[in-house]
Design a binder for these strands. Structure first.
Lengths: 207, 207
DNA sequence: CCATCAATCTTGACACTGTCAAATTGCGTC
DNA sequence: GACGCAATTTGACAGTGTCAAGATTGATGG
């Protein structure tokens, strides 16, 4: 049914059969995360935004954590698609691809800070709260990282003498650490990202 | 006054004049963080543990965040003292000191995971919630990091060609990133820390 | 067309949280 | 002993996640 909220805007409020509640909840949660981060998302506010009662979501998601894991999983898929665009860009040399990847990683993390925190933050990963689906997705993403790292070793972009798995762990750790320090506000917002990226590239790449 | 709780254990409950409530709250909060992390700390549980009412803490701490910042600040002091032991260890070459520092950093972060998360996590640093005192303390710790990084550049441990500030940012980012990935449970608990540290040393140190 | 049933909700309720303001208590000082 | 003030406690509120019971609605089969 249609009703007007206090701003006079006509809204379609579910009346015992929303029709597509699961998708609406996911979309609204995505918006809320972008606007204010994971901490700003509550099931009651989410339900109000979608126009249902506070416990409607429990029909589709066992609890709040499962909803958040669903969104994190979606985030990993998007992340991987965008990363692949750089990995597979044949207009660049392998060295340039790696440098571009470093810059993209920082830019992506900073421009999608709240989503990055959802994907990689404690709220989900602490106390083994991640769903099996999410763990599988994250595992896949990391396995792709190991594969591309070995490829970069083969092309002489990264040092060939290191174990591929370790190297993938440390290089991701470097980018992740810088991203977190910037996102969390420990490094200031006016830190020169380009110089940091260049320094990181100089340290990680084979000389 | 003295009373017995349900376990029959005599407890000293404040009766409008605890005597040393501020210190007791800090100590109890420290214990709770170690036991269950920042998320497990609530002012009500804390007050119950100390034997006062739920709002007694507001006499000493404006809010919960201020209490947590106080603990984080203390954590930074302890961290710096332990780091200095390695920086100033004259029994080791500078190269060995750096490698020892990397290993110490990982070990410290993993053995003090909940405190590390308090010090470096979003709960405190997000939305500019850190107190001025905490920011000053953290700034000092980072400035010491820049100084020791420049020293390591001078001794040929780290690449001399990089800007000292950038290098400090990136090398800390590397260690921080690895620590977070391990603490948050994204890298599994059985990851071989020694190999990761060796790989990080190989990448960061001047060749 | 109607009865049935299951999906899809809403509502009542509970425990927990942080925080504020008013009220109470106790200590130190005069 | 009175007073003032620090140091509490208590009453209250708004918000949170979640469970179970109940209500509603749409699909289906006879």
């Amino acid at each position: 049914m249609t009703y007007s909220n206090i701003t006079g805007v006509k809204m379609k409020k579910a009346r015992y059969h929303h029709g597509d509640l699961r998708h609406s909840l996911i979309k609204a949660a995505r918006d809320m995360i972008r606007e204010g981060g994971t901490e700003a998302v509550s099931l009651r506010k989410l339900a109000a935004r979608v126009g249902v009662s506070r416990t409607a979501a429990y029909h589709y998601f066992k609890d709040k954590n499962i909803l958040l894991c669903t969104l994190a999983q979606e985030g990993f898929h998007i992340w991987q698609e965008e990363a692949d665009r750089i990995f597979l860009d044949e207009k660049m040399s392998h060295e340039d691809r790696y440098k571009a990847y470093i810059r993209w990683y920082m830019t992506y993390a900073l421009e999608n800070a709240e989503y990055y925190d959802l994907m990689f933050g404690r709220a989900i990963w602490k106390q083994n709260m991640a769903t099996e689906n999410l763990k599988a997705t994250a595992y896949d993403v990391f396995q792709k990282q190991v594969a591309i790292t070995r490829q970069w070793q083969k092309y002489g972009v990264l040092p060939a003498g290191e174990d591929g798995l370790r190297l993938a762990q440390v290089t991701w750790g470097t980018l992740h650490g810088l991203a977190r320090l910037l996102i969390d506000g420990i490094y200031s917002d006016d830190s020169p990202i380009d110089e940091i990226c260049d320094c990181a590239a100089n340290l990680l790449m084979d000389k």
